[in-house]
Simulated scan of single mutants.
Amino acid sequence: MKTNQYVRTAVIQAAPIIMDREKTLNKALDLIKEAKNEQAEIVVFPEAFIPAYPRGLSFGYLVGSRTMEGRNDFLRYYKNAVPVPGDTTEKLGEAARKAGIYLVIGVTEIDTEKNNNTLYCTILYFGPDGRLLDKHQKLKPTGSERLIWGEGDGSTLSVVNTPHGKLGGLICWENYMPLARTAMYQKGVSLYVAPTADARSVWQSTIRHIALEGRCYVLSCNQFVTKDMYPDDLEYYHELQNQPNIMCSGGSAIVNPMGEYVVEPVYNKEEMLLADLNMDLVIKGKMDFDVVGHYDRTDVFQLKINENE
């Protein structure tokens, strides 16, 4: 596939309407329209944007015990999760078709094909024709995330072919898994999405390293969330009492294949980060370093990937 030299990308740093799938969907649809008005061709949303990344909530879990009140909060989260495929994905696909974009969005997924009641932290990829092209389920939820999300498998290590290059990525701290990153590089990713919930300054070191290591563009996308955005009728709302007013400060950014910022990190507000990316820089960067090409030593190191379910 011939690669178009330039592509306009939009990284959406925004907050969901927490625990409300339909209102968050409507917000996403409005933001997609705004991105289209800015001539974006690839639009990226944060990790677990629909219905929320449930930062600060325990769902009543303690080692050796659970509470019915916590189960009530979990049920609310579950009922606002996204069946894939389903009505929500149809509406997102239609929005992508109308805008003529590649849409990347993080959701908490109910995997209708697996026919279980486990939730997954998932990236969905839609094409400009409106089709759901692929998805990636987080392989290893981090810390207490394991109490609400199951583990994905190798069958969703996804890369999507676009006229601009191969589009794919990993979610949040999956990006600290060297072999997972290598799997993405082996698939030829040049537009690497990193939806995250990590607003720490050290996260910036991570995305700049990935850009340099993979000689790819990195589109890192986070939410901006304040405590007053949480519904106050949650059973465990009191757990937020000692949380800071800004629950997640953002830090979304775009980095080029030389590890330099195209758009520097944005904090403490909702914002759409726009950039025109020169895809020729991917090849220029690989002149002296191609981690799965001339800088590879498969005679010494080998990676075996199980892409079965």
Score class of each variant (00 low, 15 high):
residue 200 R to Y: 12
residue 120 Y to T: 07
residue 188 G to R: 01
residue 290 D to I: 11
residue 294 H to D: 13
residue 160 V to G: 03
residue 108 T to L: 05
residue 5 Q to C: 07
residue 130 G to V: 01
residue 71 R to C: 06
residue 291 V to P: 02
residue 241 Q to R: 08
residue 134 D to M: 05
residue 25 L to C: 10
residue 278 N to H: 12
residue 113 E to W: 11
residue 260 E to K: 11
residue 107 V to M: 02
residue 299 D to Q: 11
residue 73 D to E: 07
residue 225 V to F: 06
residue 47 E to H: 13
residue 204 Q to W: 09
residue 74 F to H: 03
residue 145 E to C: 01
residue 295 Y to I: 08
residue 37 N to G: 14
residue 148 I to N: 04
residue 307 E to C: 08
residue 121 C to M: 12
residue 21 R to G: 01
residue 68 M to A: 14
residue 199 A to D: 15
residue 130 G to N: 08
residue 136 H to W: 01
residue 113 E to D: 15
residue 180 A to K: 00
residue 57 L to K: 03
residue 301 F to T: 02
residue 71 R to I: 13
residue 254 I to L: 10
residue 228 D to A: 08
residue 110 I to F: 03
residue 23 K to A: 15
residue 265 P to Y: 00
residue 246 I to E: 15
residue 79 K to E: 07
residue 24 T to W: 04
residue 188 G to I: 00
residue 263 V to W: 10
residue 275 A to V: 04
residue 304 K to V: 09
residue 98 K to I: 02
residue 261 Y to I: 04
residue 109 E to K: 09
residue 291 V to S: 10
residue 285 G to I: 05
residue 141 P to F: 09
residue 142 T to H: 12
residue 260 E to T: 02
residue 159 V to Y: 07
residue 39 Q to A: 15
residue 138 K to E: 15
residue 56 G to A: 03
residue 67 T to R: 06
residue 149 W to C: 02
residue 33 K to P: 06
residue 138 K to T: 11
residue 306 N to I: 13
residue 186 Q to D: 01
residue 146 R to G: 13
residue 30 D to Q: 14
residue 87 D to Y: 14
residue 107 V to H: 11
residue 133 L to A: 13
residue 256 N to F: 03
residue 220 S to E: 01
residue 195 P to G: 02
residue 132 L to E: 05
residue 263 V to Q: 15
residue 111 D to H: 08
residue 40 A to L: 04
residue 73 D to S: 08
residue 121 C to K: 14
residue 220 S to I: 00
residue 155 S to K: 13
residue 161 N to I: 14
residue 277 L to R: 08
residue 78 Y to E: 05
residue 135 K to P: 04
residue 170 L to H: 03
residue 114 K to G: 03
residue 305 I to T: 06
residue 153 D to W: 08
residue 277 L to S: 09
residue 227 K to A: 03
residue 278 N to S: 12
residue 299 D to M: 07
residue 104 V to P: 07
residue 18 I to N: 12
residue 270 E to L: 00
residue 244 P to D: 09
residue 136 H to N: 11
residue 56 G to R: 06
residue 253 A to M: 06
residue 276 D to M: 07
residue 245 N to E: 15
residue 118 T to H: 13
residue 58 S to R: 06
residue 122 T to Q: 06
residue 79 K to G: 02
residue 240 L to S: 09
residue 302 Q to Y: 00
residue 217 Y to H: 05
residue 71 R to W: 13
residue 61 Y to E: 07
residue 272 M to T: 15
residue 157 L to M: 13
residue 52 A to E: 09
residue 15 A to N: 02
residue 147 L to V: 06
residue 275 A to R: 04
residue 304 K to R: 11
residue 239 E to V: 03
residue 284 K to G: 10
residue 65 S to T: 14
residue 107 V to P: 11
residue 45 F to I: 02
residue 249 S to P: 02
residue 151 E to Y: 04
residue 117 N to M: 14
residue 283 I to V: 12
residue 233 D to F: 09
residue 23 K to M: 14
